[in-house]
Computed example of a mutant assay.
Amino acid sequence: MPETTLDLRDVPPAERHPMIHSAFEALGSGEALEIVNDHEPKPLFYEFQAEVDAFDAENYDCERAEPGKFVATLPKV
């Protein structure tokens, strides 16, 4: 179960990644950040995979909950 959930659908795009990085950094080891987005966050996944050592890419998950709602889980090692 994610420790923190961010619903980003009403957040301006330029503010999303900094907000996500900040929330992820605040997590402890073994915790996860859940984000709710209006599109599949593939660019974010690749960014985290390349730049964030504590990101557990193997256990990343993203599901389309409904049109315009994607829920992604970003686990931290």
Rank of each mutant, 00 (worst) to 15 (best):
S29F: 12
M1Q: 13
N37D: 13
D56P: 12
L44Q: 08
M1H: 09
E66N: 04
H17W: 07
A26D: 09
R64S: 10
D38T: 14
G30Y: 11
A23I: 07
K69A: 07
F70N: 01
D38C: 15
A14F: 09
P12H: 15
K42A: 14
G28N: 13
S29K: 12
F24N: 05
F70S: 00
N59F: 15
P67Y: 06
R64G: 06
E51S: 05
P2D: 14
E63F: 10
I35D: 02
D7C: 02
L6R: 01
E40S: 14
T73D: 00
K76P: 01
L33N: 07
N37E: 13
E51R: 05
P43R: 14
E58C: 00
P43I: 09
E40W: 08
Q49S: 04
A26R: 11
E25M: 15
A26W: 06
A32W: 01
K76S: 03
E25T: 10
F45W: 07
F70R: 01
D53F: 03
H21W: 02
I35E: 03
D61K: 10
E40D: 15
A23C: 14
L44A: 05
D10K: 13
Q49I: 05
E63M: 12
P12D: 12
A54C: 03
L27E: 01
N59W: 14
A50V: 00
L33H: 03
F70W: 11
L33C: 05
D38I: 12
A32H: 02
Y60A: 09
P43S: 11
A72V: 02
E25F: 13
Q49K: 10
F45S: 02
P2A: 15
A65P: 00
V36H: 10
L74P: 01
T73N: 00
F70T: 01
Y46I: 08
S22L: 12
L74M: 00
G68P: 06
R9T: 10
P18Y: 02
E25S: 13
A32P: 07
L27Y: 01
F55Q: 02
F48C: 00
D56Q: 05
L8P: 09
P2R: 08
E47N: 05
Y46A: 10
E3S: 08
Q49M: 05
V71I: 12
E51C: 01
E58D: 12
A14G: 13
A32Y: 03
H17E: 09
F70E: 03
G30E: 05
F24E: 06
E3F: 01
E3P: 01
P18Q: 08
G30F: 04
A14P: 02
F45G: 02
D61V: 08
P43N: 09
S29D: 15
L8F: 08
E34R: 15
D7S: 04
P67A: 10
F45D: 06
P18W: 02
A65F: 12
H21C: 01
E51D: 08
A54S: 10
E47W: 09
A23Y: 05
F48W: 03
C62A: 11
P43Q: 13
E63V: 15
L74R: 00
Y60C: 11
Q49N: 04
G28C: 10
T4S: 06
D61I: 14
